[in-house]
Amino acid sequence: MSEQIRAKRELFIPGHYGCPGCGATVAMQQTLSVLGEDTIVVMTAGCWSSLIGIYPYTCLTVPVVSVAFGATASVAAGIKAGLTIQGNDHTTVLAFAGDGGTFDIGFQPLSGVVERNDDILFICYDNEAYMNTGIQRSSATPAGAWTTTTPDSARKGQRKKNMVEIMAAHRIPYAATASIGAPEDLKEKLEKAKNIKGSRFIHLFASCPTGWRHATELSIEVARQAIKSRVFPLYEVFGGDTWQLSSMPEKEGVDAYLKHQGRFKKMSVEERDRMQMRVDDDWQRLINRCQAPRAVG
């Protein structure tokens, strides 16, 4: 059915208000191209609720509701309940929130929804800060990155929260990391997520030239570098206990990832080394959990 529907109309039409090179728009475009017309989108405060358009203009042709900042998962679960009791068991309810709306203010409702295993797909487009309000830190901002609310030496000291681990600890049916730098892998994961019942979570890496201080044409490249350098590994977790690596990049240092981004400019050599060490540790930890990797580029 989705193939026919997709042929019928574009779900993401020209005219969004995003910055040039915005990774979050690529994330939505890819997502809707797989989920298709039978999708209701719940979005929240953040770049997406601004860039979608100003009433009466919108760049999405699926039903959309833009809700309070912490309420993406809970409104989505309510919509699903409302549809189900009226006999609709097919529509995908997509909660689409930024890292702030997922890792921070939206965390409790998300945890509640996943613990109850409500049947929604939650996608966090992660640009690693509160971008819409002007590049403030979130718990998804990596250590060493500059933001406008990191007064200590103008960069964040604490490391990034691992949301997929937390989701896995809920025994969520499906959780995965994905990236706009690996579109084929993302599509596969979306297909999978679409066809699983219960709560599904995709942590989708989405570069932000404005906030990360890199050239607008480098968004995809930077996202690729995050995968290659193992800073943002791609993997899936089924039922909270079967971990599966999606790609096995060569060991390549973090420098190639850092070098294009102004936000890491102030990092000291020690901080850079600490980052490398953490990346290596996290990678090892992930490998230990994972089954043999699939053959994906």
Binding site: I40, V42, V65, V67, A71, S74, V75, A76, A77, G78, I79, K80, A81, G82, L83, I85, Q86
Partner: peptide, 8 residues
């Protein structure tokens, strides 16, 4: 609110 928006 979500359920009501869905018509329930």
């Amino acid at each position: 609110m979500g359920a009501s928006l869905a018509g329930a």
